[in-house]
Design a protein around this nucleic acid. Structure first.
Lengths: 332, 332
DNA sequence: TTGTATGCGTTATCAC
DNA sequence: GTGATAACGCATACAA
């Protein structure tokens, strides 16, 4: 391995000068800088991150903890986070939490162990008011989860507003009996609750009260969970002409489950999701959905961690992503 | 930050003894070991990875370079790799290469810089015979790409065999004019070429020669690329009763594109993909596809890197994943 | 503008 | 079975 001393010897300077050149610091004359750069090129020198980290306490790596990287939504999010972090000179290590509070706490502990400079936590099981979260002594940004504590930086989705708009969209399209497929086991989770409230709010806005029987809880926030819910929905015999889904991933399964029962979308039932995953536009029928600005969210989250890495004392802030309602075939 | 010396002081031993306990080394008496463990627990000590790395040259992190983590297939793969690596005590850092040789070379360079212990490279733009790949002086495993060089460990997909089986499946279902939607810009890429050859082979097996006009090249290996190809396919006016797609991701777009033109699957045209991404079973109609064992691939790749980390001299080996043909609604 | 000394936390080596 | 010491490669503080 070629070290700074090697480069220094080659360029006829001290290691310190090499260090200054490598880190683009001022205080090195033009000729010397060029000579050092040439020596670096020739020798194929690469900074040793570990040594730098040991010395400076920075790793240049941001942790990203998501429930499951295999789910489109989180894959998409990760893609944006990795891209944005790269722009700011950081690398990203991905953790999978398995959508459980335990996994999320593990991610925090791991981050500590691995000396990530900061952590972006897409939490579903962990409440940001969790004591153990606040105990972490380094930058954490919560992503995609509604927060109340205000102790941590937060990039939230327009959960209530988005679902409200989605539900309103169905009603405006003429739906009179709108069902909602929402979280089951994850009942306590804010994102689920807030979206459900959006569904209620859209009804309330029009002086309506939805039939409680039209609320279907998934057993899992997955296509399989959605499919199962759709079966129950279809088999219930209830008159239903619209469905609001808690996520696109669930909506995928709902669409499939309705097809299983011979129900056509949008002819028999209209359907709307949340997230605008890449598949949404490609589904048959294409899925109407709430599209929060994912790139904005990723960029904001990265900026927040990086900002906090450089200035840990800054007060926590909360940001809500803008969104757009994508009206596609499933509600035509 | 609490260091080994802190623990050592607390336990009344030397740092070396603490190190031995932390690393589960022999040569520490029972009582002392217990005392040290207790001190670790009390103090909340965590090893400093950077220091350990600096000293030992190992980071405990494996790099995973994929074209786009946002695509289902790679997200799924990453999920499995992360899981398997965790099982063996390694963390995973994900790089995005953007499906370009440049990005892939960057990943190699980055790995070097960050001192990953090894790299799993899901290459599409880079040929494993590339000189620069072989120059890398640390463990690299190629994933999902057919190799000929034999210089690197390789976990390949059953590209030709899989597509051959998929094509045969269509023919057995009664299709007489089977089109293929294959790679365009990525023409030189092995995975695409091999799959196309599987399409040809299935025909040759039956003494058939497919009409060259039935070959449609996508402009991008994405749903959008597939959709566009489907439009051209439908607008060609050619009699086509089956389509073999190079990937499920492309097939998603093809299905969508056929729907755009009022063509129904499987009634008008049968469709088969490759990969068995999670969405395949949830699509309407559900997508028949070639299902390589992703978990097996991830596990094998991780074992290979880890094995090579411990024994760099071992000769390179090549492994081909088993697969299964999933017959679903799109070919019914 | 450039160089020297020192220490970050850990582990390999060797002495006890 | 345990401990003292040096060294990994880099960057901070300060001297020149």
């Amino acid at each position: 391995m070629v070290t700074m001393s090697d480069v220094a010897r080659l360029a006829g300077v001290s290691t310190m000068t090499v260090s200054n050149v490598v880190n683009n610091r001022p205080g090195v004359s033009g000729p010397v800088r060029t000579r050092v750069q040439e020596a670096i090129r020739q020798s194929g020198y690469r900074v040793n991150t570990s040594a730098r980290t040991l010395r400076s306490g920075r790793t240049g790596v941001i942790g990203l903890a998501v429930p499951e990287i295999g789910r489109s939504y989180f894959g998409l999010l990760a893609a944006h986070v990795i891209e944005q972090a790269g722009r700011l000179g950081f690398h990203v290590a991905v953790e999978q939490t398995g959508a459980a509070a335990d996994g999320e706490l593990d991610a925090i502990a791991h981050s500590h162990t691995l000396h990530f400079d900061g952590l972006i936590l897409s939490a579903v099981g962990l409440d940001s008011r969790d004591r153990r979260l606040a105990e972490a002594d380094y930058p954490i940004v919560m992503l995609g989860e509604q927060d109340y504590g205000g102790r941590l930086d937060h990039v939230a989705m327009p959960n209530e507003e988005g679902t409200r708009a989605a539900t309103a969209h169905l009603i405006e399209r003429g739906c009179r009996r709108v069902a909602v497929v929402t979280g089951g086991a994850l009942e306590g989770v804010n994102v689920v609750t807030r979206r459900y409230q959006g569904y209620l709010a859209a009804h309330a806005d029009r002086g309506l009260t939805p039939d409680p029987a039209l609320r279907f809880a998934v057993t899992a926030m997955s296509p399989e969970g959605g499919r199962d819910a759709a079966h129950r929905l279809a088999d219930s015999g209830l008159a239903i002409d619209g469905v609001v889904c808690v996520t696109d991933t669930v909506a995928q399964g709902v669409l499939r489950g309705l097809a299983d029962r011979g129900l056509r979308v949008p002819d028999d039932i209209r359907l709307v999701g949340y997230d605008d995953i890449p598949e949404a536009a490609m589904m048959v029928p294409s899925l109407s959905t709430v599209a929060p600005d994912h790139r904005w969210m990723a960029a904001t989250a990265v900026e927040l961690v990086v900002g906090r890495i450089h200035d840990g004392g800054r007060p926590a802030s909360e940001h809500v992503a803008p969104f757009e309602l994508m009206a596609r075939e499933s509600t035509r």
